[in-house]
Design a protein around this nucleic acid. Structure first.
Length: 200
DNA sequence: TTCCCGATTTACT
DNA sequence: GTAAATCGGGAAA
């Protein structure tokens, strides 16, 4: 098992990184408990030119500072006061690009995930959706701005998918971004069950 | 310092 | 299908 290299995260094209992250394995180690799974759904946030991105227009604040870091660190953000969203910062330092991890297929530490989610049996929804995923992996703000080559959270190389196995569609929950809400920056693995559905 | 709103999920009508 | 929960960040005053 090899962790993804720093060079991987620092590619210029965040959309490309988002696609390549599909099929890779994401792990966390919280208080010695390792949980993780295969990434099945991602979303790209293209920094300063993307209205849906927190750092749109080069906005630099306490919260968005993490996105300006060099690629290869986490960006964890609390949304709706309840849910933690896990992002992977990409690109070079000063370029606020990030990939939101929206869903994974659980592989390691299933019992711990069930416990954290207060569920008694495995269901796809346990990690389908950014908030659910973070809860299952025990991710909270403590894991913000962590280096992805460290031992608390990391991503390992595993599989890559071709374009014909990847579905590109519009992002979810970013209607406020106006025309940018229509950008096909959301990617998921075709036919995979562990993918969040648009709330309908 | 105050007010408004969100990269969502879940429970209930 | 619809609404409520809930709190930190960002912008305005």
């Amino acid at each position: 098992m090899s962790k993804l290299s720093l060079a991987f995260y620092q590619q210029e094209d965040v959309v490309s990184v988002a696609k390549q992250l599909l099929g890779k394995k994401l792990f966390t180690n919280i208080n010695g408990i390792v949980t993780g799974g295969i990434i099945t759904e991602t979303e790209a946030y293209d920094g300063a030119i993307d209205k849906a991105c927190h750092a749109y227009g080069g906005k630099y604040t306490n919260r968005t500072a993490t996105m300006f870091l060099k690629g290869g660190v986490t960006y964890v953000y609390l949304c709706y006061g309840i849910h933690h969203l896990l992002n992977v910062v990409s690109g070079k330092e000063g370029n606020p690009q990030a990939v939101l991890i929206r869903a994974i297929e659980p592989v390691v530490g299933l019992e711990a995930m069930l416990q954290r989610r207060k569920m008694d049996k495995l269901a796809p929804r346990i990690t389908a959706g950014p908030g659910a995923l973070s809860q299952a992996l025990g991710i909270d703000k403590q894991l913000n701005a962590k280096d992805l080559s460290a031992n608390e959270i990391w991503i390992e190389d595993f599989e890559s998918y071709n374009d014909d196995q990847i579905v590109a569609t519009t992002r979810i929950g970013v209607a406020y971004a106006e025309e940018h809400a229509l950008w096909p920056f959301r990617f998921y693995v075709k036919g995979n069950k562990f993918v969040s559905k648009p709330s309908s």
